[in-house]
Amino acid sequence: MNNKFRFLPIATFLGFAFLYVPIIVLVVFSFNKSKLVTVWGGFSAHWYGELLQDPQILGAAWISLQIAFISASLALVLGTLAAFVLTRIGRFWFKPLLSGMTAAPLVMPEVITGLSLLLLFVAMEAMFGWPAGRGFTTIVIAHTTFCLAYVAVVVQSRLSDMDESIEEAARDLGAKPVRVFFDITLPTIAPALMSGWLLSFTLSLDDLVIASFVSGPGASTLPMVIFSKVRLGVSPEINALASLMIGVVALGVAIAAWQLLKSPQKSKA
């Protein structure tokens, strides 16, 4: 018994060390003065300055942020609709198909999704002349499609956990279906919508493979630029970029945690 009690915390500690040591090393060495990334040459914020003056990275970041914002928002609407249809609307003949199509993008290897969408866009262009060429729009469509699945999963689980009699009560008191959705359903699933949107935003911002397939000249996203740089070896600039992105996420998580810790105390009072 004692044995097990020592084994578990040690195993867990080592597991977390495995998850976090690389990130910590990355952040520490982003403040390295030396150009040799792996040899400590003193503290400096020099590479952050370099990063903020690199037009290629800044341009790609701006494109990625726009794509992520639009894709996440579209995916939020479409994913919520899909989740709503799957949990709240009774049987119709292609419901199993819709359910399968909603879940499948989650596990589909990215190379397949990327390839298949590219081939579709090429075929569509040949047939209808749209989308003319590939770039911003096609990346948005591709990202919306796979982010939609994540939103649908998150929202679906919230909707099926939700007590349906609350919606019935609203109908019973005279609210029409659209009203019920806006008055009752939406406020109840708001946290799930928020996390669905954020998840989509980060997934889109992070995607390399699908974007590489469906993008065209002139639309290089941040991961594409990072990938081409990283293939040539480690660069102190990328360390700085990674640390900035990790910093933003850590801040976001800290705020979310603070909100979570705050809210139960409020309701107790």
């Binding site: 990130i23 990355l26 792996t38 990790i246 850590a250």
Partner: peptide, 27 residues
Amino acid sequence: MLVIMPFWTSFLLRVYAWIGILKGNGY
């Protein structure tokens, strides 16, 4: 939260971190 957090950080950059750790003149 510690398990979930890596989800939110760039996958590409986390893989990249290992290059610096594992390479010939790495950490």
